[in-house]
């Protein structure tokens, strides 16, 4: 987010400040530990995740523009910290961590953010947001309120794009085949943009769209909601 997709994070700040919230960015933060955790390196993951717990210990609410990282904290920290001294602290942090669209639509109950974004947009249900956090209607509700935006649906919108972290480089053939199915559905529905709440999915989908020379662009929902 910090390095590859700064504009997503900037948009999140703009949207939240626009709603009158005070946003802080603890500079000591790096990663939630998911890459190591998913690869089986739980000790290394725990060390990094413990730092995450430290850095965010005093935060009132943590908002994260990624369903994947949010699910890591909310669901998988229970596995990672089970039977360790940090278990309680991890549960505490998990309880105040929200995915961006979840925070807006469920916690704050806002729908219309006054955004304007002309174009046909199709929503990709990223796996962790959908199955980990049960976010299906929430992002769609936010998008429908955007002026000029035409929300489309695609076939198999709930099917994984094939990213899966290190899976995408350990098994590039399988990962790309899955991506191919996804990109096929996106192109078929006639969208100008494919939007999601996870930059990693968008990187996977966008990578193949670009390789194919497709006109469809990827965009994070925060960027849409921050558009005027």
């Amino acid at each position: 987010m910090d390095q590859l997709f700064p504009n997503v994070a900037i948009s999140v700040v703009k949207v939240l400040e626009g709603l009158g919230h005070q946003v802080d960015y603890p500079e000591g933060q790096t990663c939630c530990g998911q890459p190591a955790f998913n690869s089986g390196y739980w000790k290394e993951a725990r060390d990094v995740a413990a730092r995450f717990l430290d850095v965010f210990a005093d935060a009132e609410t943590i908002v994260c523009p990624s369903g994947s990282c949010t699910t890591m904290i909310r669901e998988f920290y229970f596995d990672l910290f089970r039977d360790t001294a940090d278990f309680k602290a991890s549960a505490g942090v998990a309880a105040k961590t929200f995915e961006f669209t979840e925070f807006l639509a469920r916690k704050l109950n806002v729908v219309d953010l006054g955004a304007r974004f002309p174009g046909r947009v199709v929503w990709h249900d990223a796996c962790h947001g959908l199955r980990g956090l049960c976010l299906k209607e929430e992002p769609r509700r936010l998008l429908r309120a955007v002026r000029g935006l035409d929300l489309l649906e695609m076939k198999e919108s709930e099917t994984c794009c094939g990213f899966g972290g290190t899976f995408s480089i350990k098994f590039p053939n399988i990962s790309t085949a899955m991506d191919d199915v996804k990109v096929g559905s996106i192109e078929e529905c006639g969208a100008d943009y494919v939007a999601s709440a996870d930059s990693s999915c968008l990187m996977q989908i966008g990578g193949l769209l670009e390789k194919r020379g497709s006109k469809v662009k990827t965009i994070h929902i925060a960027e849409i909601l921050a558009s005027r």
């Binding site: 987010m1 910090d2 390095q3 590859l4 997709f5 700064p6 504009n7 994070a9 900037i10 700040v13 960015y25 500079e27 995408s168 480089i169 350990k170 590039p172 790309t176 991506d179 990187m203 996977q204 966008g206 990578g207 193949l208 670009e210 390789k211």
Partner: peptide
């Protein structure tokens, strides 16, 4: 190349969020 053979890599922007902040 295990990524980039089949998928383009996103370009790393010149300015990070950290810089912007």
């Amino acid at each position: 190349q295990r990524w980039s053979k089949t998928r383009a890599l996103p370009e790393i922007p010149a300015r990070s969020f950290h810089d912007w902040w």
